[in-house]
Simulated scan of single mutants.
Amino acid sequence: MKNRERVEAILHYQSYDQLPVVHFGFWNETLQKWLAEGHINEEEAGTYYEGCLSLNQKLGFDFNWFSTFFYHSTLNPLFERKVIDAMPDGSKKVMNACGVVELEKPGTGSIPMEIEHTLTDRVSWEEHYLPRLQFFADRIQKSVVMNPDSGTFQVFSENGVNILRDESRSQHYGLYCGSLIGDIRNWLGVVGLSYLQVDDEDLFHEMVQTVADLDYRYTEEILKSGAKFDFAHFWEDICFKNGPLVSPAVFEEVIGPHYKRITNLVRRYGIDIISVDCDGCIDSLIPTWLENGVNTMFPIEVGTWNASIAPWREQYGRELRGVGGMNKTVFSKDRKAVDEEIERLKPLVDLGGYIPCPDHRLPPDAEWDNVRYYCDRMHEAFRQ
Rank of each mutant, 00 (worst) to 15 (best):
T210P: 09
Q171A: 13
G60V: 07
A307N: 08
L214A: 01
V246C: 13
R81L: 11
A366F: 09
D369K: 07
N292H: 12
L265M: 07
L265F: 01
L78W: 11
N327I: 00
M146A: 04
E127S: 08
L78K: 12
V211P: 03
V101A: 00
L345P: 04
E127P: 00
C239N: 12
L285E: 07
P131A: 00
S91P: 06
D272A: 07
K328N: 05
T108D: 09
D350P: 03
M113F: 12
A137G: 01
I163D: 12
M326D: 05
H12C: 05
F298G: 01
L78I: 13
L320H: 02
K58P: 08
E5F: 08
D334K: 02
D215N: 15
L59K: 02
F136H: 15
F331Q: 07
L214G: 01
S332T: 04
H12P: 05
V266R: 01
D237N: 11
V123I: 14
F66V: 11
E380S: 04
H360G: 07
H23R: 09
S124C: 03
Y218A: 07
I163Y: 08
V338Y: 01
T108K: 11
Y71K: 08
I40P: 00
Y216T: 02
E127D: 11
S247N: 14
L196G: 13
S168E: 12
R169H: 13
F153Y: 15
E343D: 14
L180D: 04
T296L: 11
S170Q: 14
N264H: 08
I115C: 08
F382E: 06
R372G: 15
G99R: 06
M87K: 15
P347M: 09
D230L: 11
I300Y: 03
A381Q: 06
I274H: 00
C281E: 13
V330M: 07
I163F: 03
W125R: 05
R268Y: 09
T296F: 02
R185M: 14
L193R: 03
Q32K: 10
I262D: 06
E220F: 03
D350V: 03
G99A: 06
C98F: 15
E314K: 14
N56R: 10
V155Y: 15
Y173I: 06
E42C: 00
A9M: 05
G38W: 05
I274Q: 02
G324F: 03
G325T: 06
I271D: 04
S179L: 04
S332I: 00
V266S: 02
E50H: 13
M326H: 10
D200L: 08
I274P: 02
D166F: 08
L119W: 07
Q171E: 15
Q57G: 00
E8A: 14
Y176G: 02
R321K: 12
E252P: 06
G352S: 11
N96Q: 05
V7W: 15
H23C: 14
N147E: 12
P299K: 05
P77E: 09
Y71V: 12
P364Q: 12
E44N: 03
S124Y: 01
N162S: 13
T304K: 13
S157T: 10
G189V: 00
V101Y: 01
G25S: 09
V144E: 07
E43N: 11
